[in-house]
Write a protein that binds this DNA or RNA. Sequence first.
DNA 1: GAGTGGTCTAGACCACCAC
DNA 2: TGGTGGTCTAGACCACTCT
Lengths: 263, 263
Amino acid sequence: MVNEGILVNQIDPTSDRAVFRQIADQLRQAIEGGRLRGGEKLPSEAELMEHYGVARMTVRQAIQELRNEGLAVAEHGRGVFVRRRPPVKRLASDRFARRHRKDGKAAFLAESEAVGAKSDVDRILVSEVVPSPEIRERLRTGPDEVVVSRSRRYLRDGHPVELATSYIPVGIAHGTKIMESNTGPGGIYARIEDQGHTFERYVEDVSTRLPTREEAKLLSLTSGTPVFRLIRTAYDLDGMAVEVCDTIMAGDAFLLSYELPAH
Amino acid sequence: MVNEGILVNQIDPTSDRAVFRQIADQLRQAIEGGRLRGGEKLPSEAELMEHYGVARMTVRQAIQELRNEGLAVAEHGRGVFVRRRPPVKRLASDRFARRHRKDGKAAFLAESEAVGAKSDVDRILVSEVVPSPEIRERLRTGPDEVVVSRSRRYLRDGHPVELATSYIPVGIAHGTKIMESNTGPGGIYARIEDQGHTFERYVEDVSTRLPTREEAKLLSLTSGTPVFRLIRTAYDLDGMAVEVCDTIMAGDAFLLSYELPAH
DNA sequence: GAGTGGTCTAGACCACCAC
DNA sequence: TGGTGGTCTAGACCACTCT
């Protein structure tokens, strides 16, 4: 037997509001009011049918609504639970500052360690591709020009949180460790600087959307978690775009922080 | 009769993949492959039942999946349509630069005009409140300290795209037009500068999530559209936080662009 | 009025989980 | 083994849109 005390009211069948929405409303109030906390189990479908005197499909619609809103997560054979909010990680706008490369760490690893999280990289894939128009316009490459593509997945404490693909002109990447899985101390940014390109500025374009099915799978996202798409373009002192990085980040795992001068 | 030619394959009932997912897969492929374009009508439920030989609830589940993914939008009595992607607006990181205030325009209005969109503000509400901890830690106010709150909704070409609430210490706002609906030329930022506070820098904290029901309603968001939450803190030359602005932006209507020096 | 999606019922069988 | 959610059927009545 479970906590049905959270359901105080009955349904008003004469209301304009659909029965399944009224049930969803009550459950939502229980969650938002703190009577049901993250990780706690909602009443089972059978209990809700009994309590409200409705058919199973009706209570399932109510639960589906909460799942769509990202408030609840179903686990087959166990029950439906109030979603836990994972701790978000704050990414400061100086995360690519050169000093963070001094001790030989790539940006993601350095940031993660700063907050005491263990980080890993997997699914590293290096190839040569003709990039999409979105990337091409930023790299300023020709319509059929091939560039080096490095994709990888980042994990924090064992959980995947970010997919990233870097695009680097072949003239910079060829003959360097950028073409290898292990790029050496400081990551690809250090290798680009080795080639005589000093970074001057970065431009980050941030958008948000729901993940594709593939992204959801690779990031283990539960339904209702949006992603950030962040496209970063790195420019050197000559104003040349030396790298474009296309990133998909789990929306519930990051907070992006930017500092802007008022000039 | 409608375009059923998009549905080439039949269902494999022996597959591990649920029938409704297989139907969703085919519709999704038609959309992503461009055979069904934005605004076009999907086959009706009756047609899908007939075509696949399944019950109505099964085709409804398939359509529900596409709606959850944000690919399709249902219109009662008309049909289900491939979602149109609204044009996104790029917000440059210099959007609060002082020169944009010189001609008397507030930031949002100036940006919108730059891309030829007509903009409006409504639902302006000025009050005094004790802010939430999130706001308080940024404004550095005491636990019971009251601040001035200004909330409003921004519209672009008649469509709501952004909800914003500014919090300003009473010492700055009292006795100024910040307390009135119409804050005068240049908006509240110009009024804060009138009070002798020169802006030095801003910090923007960006997160993403699905909207609450209230936000979805005020922004006319269809299911499957996430929002940006952007909390901007404005600091003056003395390092004092003079305003915190808590913003909810329709995720399909904005692209945030930030420029970071490599220092 | 014909066609559309929205809501709801009352069943069925299955797969997964914990005990 | 019993309880859970996942899938599916075959109906019903309703509200909305278009003509």
